[in-house]
Write a protein that binds this DNA or RNA. Structure first.
Lengths: 144, 144
DNA sequence: CTCTAAATAGAAATGATTTCGTTTTAAAAT
DNA sequence: ATTTTAAAACGAAATCATTTCTATTTAGAG
């Protein structure tokens, strides 16, 4: 599996450093999204030296190359999520337990085309994210 | 028109202070979204005293009560937009000139229901925003 | 085994946003 | 109109997640 991650990094034109691999492994093992600081706290014990800026930098680079997904959180902090689904899709994120679930294809691509045509503009990107409570958290009525 | 804004504030349970009215008037006159600091710079000349924190606080309160719309910007700063369309809808925001255009109803409500039913969770909110260049900016090839 | 561009460290800076205790004000009540 | 009071505003200072900077280290190509 480390091979797999190394290949992903190589495909993204990034060196497969031990720290990057560790970040990917940790995030893949997580069922949900995590913050840079949380990842750093978990990982810094496994390396002689690991700086928080390194975690920030890698998460951002991995997000830019599409390996990780950035979560838009109401508290405006950064969170990242490892999603193995290579298809274009969107997410339902639980604000309580941080679980992330894929949501089925929506009509956004068609919507993008329509907006482009109607207004003559160019859609560069879109954000679609459902926020809420997953099944388990909804039952418990929890809200971290 | 000031009456109209005062009524909106009253309906939201907020006092119709001159500063709030000025913020609403300025934002309504804008064709696009604006940052707290930009609004503050424009408005502070019209009042003996106007603090930047006051602008932040009011924009956030107005956004919470639904009078203003918050724009999710890639640079992670706060921007607000006055949208007079009372129907639930979404926006296409130009990253260059900041114009905001309504986009037609999408299938999100149905999607929300489906996600709720399929996963047993509860969708509390959703984010849908198209980012891009409006017709004019796309032509000019501009990118502020 | 070099060599070099990319990656990392770590301290320091940044800067948007928020907090806090005080003062002022809108508007309800008299 | 005047009083009252809860809400709003002030503004200096704090916060703190995120970024920058320069020196050092390292992955991986040759």
């Amino acid at each position: 599996m480390e091979q797999r991650h190394a290949a992903v990094l190589k495909a993204a034109g990034m060196k497969a450093t031990p720290k990057r691999l560790a970040i990917l492994e940790l995030l893949e093992a997580e069922s949900g999204y995590a913050s840079p600081e949380e990842l750093w706290k978990t990982l810094k014990g496994r390396f002689d030296r690991l700086g928080l800026p390194t975690v920030y930098r890698n998460l951002e680079e991995l997000s830019e190359s599409g390996v990780l997904t950035k979560v838009i959180h109401p508290n405006r902090q950064l969170y990242y999520y490892f999603c193995s689904n290579p298809e274009h899709h969107h997410h339902f994120v639980c604000l309580s337990c941080r679980k992330v679930e894929d949501i089925p294809s929506c009509g956004i691509d068609a919507l993008e085309r329509e907006v482009s045509i109607r207004n003559g503009g160019k859609v560069l990107s879109h954000i679609l994210q459902l926020n809420g409570l997953c099944g388990g958290c909804a039952k418990k009525g929890e809200m971290a």
